[in-house]
């Protein structure tokens, strides 16, 4: 393989990291951890990945890609098809639109914005599921899940930042 082709392939691979990590995050949410009640409070890893990349590298996380990741998650998790896709699309679109106010700010500020996003996400999801299932659902399990998601942002962000620093400089 000639050097320019190698370089192009290398660049393409590096540019696909945000999408790839979002897919991995989606699969990570499906890991069967044999611990009681883990599955009900397992964090929404995909939301963390989509938020972080929407702030840092929105050019490498197109909204069409976010939409497909949402569909992928809906299909695998058995959720109403299109719901997570729609919610991820709106969340990523919002963050990418407001990026000018978020990017470059302190980590606690990033965390705070994520917290607000999580609260809105949880409320919308709870409302949508209650409507789709035709009854008012108990929000307790969802509250635990999203509290865990909020708490895990620094860890997830640190991992994704390591990916960004190690493999995505100058791409």
């Amino acid at each position: 393989m000639s050097e320019p082709i190698q370089r192009a392939v290398d660049r393409a691979v590096r540019r696909s990291f945000p999408m790839a990590t979002a897919v991995v995050a989606s699969l990570a949410g499906l890991i069967d951890v044999p611990a009681a009640e883990y599955s009900r409070i397992a964090p929404a890893f995909t939301l963390i990945a989509v938020y972080c990349w929407s702030v840092w590298r929105p050019d490498l996380l197109p909204l069409s890609g976010v939409f497909l990741i949402g569909l992928f998650e809906d299909l695998l998790r058995g959720l109403p098809l299109g719901l997570t896709a729609l919610m991820l699309l709106v969340a990523a679109g919002f963050v990418q639109n407001q990026r000018a106010y978020i990017f470059g700010r302190s980590n606690p500020f990033l965390w705070l914005v994520f917290g607000l996003l999580v609260v809105v996400w949880m409320t919308v999801e709870w409302l949508a599921m209650s409507i789709l299932l035709g009854q008012i659902l108990d929000p307790e399990a969802a509250a635990f899940r999203y509290a865990a998601t909020f708490g895990l942002l620094p860890v997830g962000a640190a991992l994704l930042l390591a990916v960004q620093r190690s493999g995505m400089q100058n791409v």
Binding site: D32, V33, Y38, E125
Partner: peptide, 15 residues
């Protein structure tokens, strides 16, 4: 074998 835990707050299922 249980392959994947697709359980969540709103849908309780397994693969």
């Amino acid at each position: 074998t249980v392959v994947a835990d697709t359980d969540g707050p709103y849908v309780r299922s397994l693969l």
